[in-house]
Amino acid sequence: MASEIFKIAAVQLRPILLVLSLIVLYRGHNEPGGGFIGGIMAGMGFVLYAMAVGVEKARKSRTIKPVSFMGLGLFFALISGLFAPFSGVGLFMQGVWTEIELPWGSAIKLGTPLLFDAGVYLLVTGMITSIMYAIMEE
């Protein structure tokens, strides 16, 4: 069905797109990017791969099902909202931040919004792959 060049390109593109999407996700808080964009990119990686090798093989090559991606995403998003009420900082969905010192001197800020964004990322990835897989199987 697909040409060889496309096949090879798509197979190689998948890991690149995934890594790229994670970078986009991470930098989204300060620069262009974020969970939605990253999610679409990751989803596209999976979809391209499935187009090249067929959905059946694509499904097999993934240990986590698209539906689980979505569930996990929603779970992350919800959990991130529960930090504040349970730690007594504020209401549901209020951001909670903490700073982690890294061994080489610098520090990174971690907060529940990042977790939330990761949830969005996972959910969008899952949605796109599950929709496209289902349609391509028809």
Partner: peptide, 28 residues
């Protein structure tokens, strides 16, 4: 307040995260 320089993203995941939660549920 939210330690983010990308205001759009901060709105999505922090200021109005509850809306976003609703929206991703719609996607699901």
């Amino acid at each position: 307040l939210a330690y983010g320089k990308n205001v759009v993203n901060v709105i999505l995941v922090d200021f109005r995260a509850l809306d976003t939660l609703g929206e991703i549920t719609v996607l699901l």
